[in-house]
């Protein structure tokens, strides 16, 4: 090995990427839970049980409970993650929550991606005072403090899922405008654009039919990261009381319900949903990173 081996930009070797596999597994798992999570839990995630503040079973009790729940000899299905101080089954809520969190995150991401890509395309392809103004507006939007703005928007507009989606979309759109515009600026001088123009294709058609599809890569890669952060933001909003309303199953809301008890030692209502957020957002970050390495 010569001394300067690390000074060349060698293409990374294509081999099995553990990290990528982990990311895909996590994202696929959460997506599956978003589809079927609310139906497979032992309890209805939005109804309380008469048993409050039940701690989760200890490790030594788990085999017995598993056997019991398969042979139907228990009085009631076990509370795998305990119950919180109102009697909600923590496990049922944790696996039902992706329906809420992932829906909000995906919707917010794709609304802002759609709007951002179109505006970014226009701003990059047609340079005039109108698109210049658009970029200045986008600058102003980007200088909004993210968390507090989202909190203000949701609290004043009403704490519904739709409003959370719109608030998140508003703070994420400038990122997509910027990413798409930068890519369009590079792609609009490509040979295929010249060719299309020579054939007499109208400019607007060149922009949407040829430049846009070729400029989407950075925005699509960013999506994975944005979805992860949108989940963090959604749960953070619920945590401060400016997110979805109880009893909607949502991870941040569950953490917030348990937060007052944790100081008294009742850890399970907060710890389990937190682990779920932690793993999920990590999964999206890993996936986003792997995509970035592969396509950039």
């Amino acid at each position: 090995m010569n001394e300067f081996a690390d000074t060349t930009f060698a293409a990374p070797k294509r081999r099995f990427n553990w990290l990528f596999a982990i990311g895909v597994t996590i994202v696929a798992g959460v997506t599956l839970l978003a589809l079927i999570g609310p139906y497979i839990g032992p309890y209805d995630p939005t109804l309380t049980t008469p048993r409050v503040s039940v701690p989760p079973p200890s490790l030594s009790e788990i085999p017995g409970l598993l056997f019991g729940s398969f042979s139907n000899t228990l009085e009631h299905p076990p509370h795998w993650m305990g119950t919180d101080s109102s009697g909600y089954d923590v496990f049922s809520r944790v696996i039902a929550a992706p329906r809420t969190d992932l829906t909000i995150a995906l919707a917010a991401n794709f609304v802002s991606l759609g709007i951002g890509a179109v505006l970014g395309l226009l701003a990059g392809y047609f340079r005039n005072w109108g698109t210049e103004l658009l970029m200045r507006v986008s600058d102003v939007l980007q200088s909004f403090p993210v968390f507090i703005s989202a909190m203000v928007l949701v609290a004043l507009a009403g704490r519904s899922m739709g409003n959370i989606v719109l608030a998140l979309a508003l703070v994420y759109t400038p990122i997509y405008i910027r990413l798409t515009r930068a890519e369009v600026l590079q792609k609009k001088v490509a040979g295929y654009v010249e060719a299309a123009r020579a054939m007499g294709t109208p400019e607007i058609a060149i922009a949407f039919r040829h430049v846009l599809p070729n400029s989407m890569t950075p925005a699509l890669i960013q999506s994975s990261v944005t979805i992860g952060f949108a989940i963090l933001l959604t749960s953070g909003l619920s945590f401060v009381g400016a997110g979805v309303r109880p009893p909607t199953p949502e991870w941040g809301l569950s953490i917030s319900t348990g937060a007052n008890q944790i100081i008294l030692g009742e850890w399970w209502p907060s710890v389990f949903p937190g682990i779920a957020i932690s793993i999920t957002v990590f999964g999206f970050a890993v996936l986003g990173n792997a995509l970035e390495e592969r396509y950039e």
Binding site: L232, G252, G258, A259, I277
Partner: peptide, 17 residues
């Protein structure tokens, strides 16, 4: 990657516990 994607308020609660 891990640290950058964590809900810090939850870690706060965990550390308090």
């Amino acid at each position: 990657l891990f640290a950058g994607s964590q809900p810090e308020f939850w870690w706060g609660l965990l550390l308090i516990y």
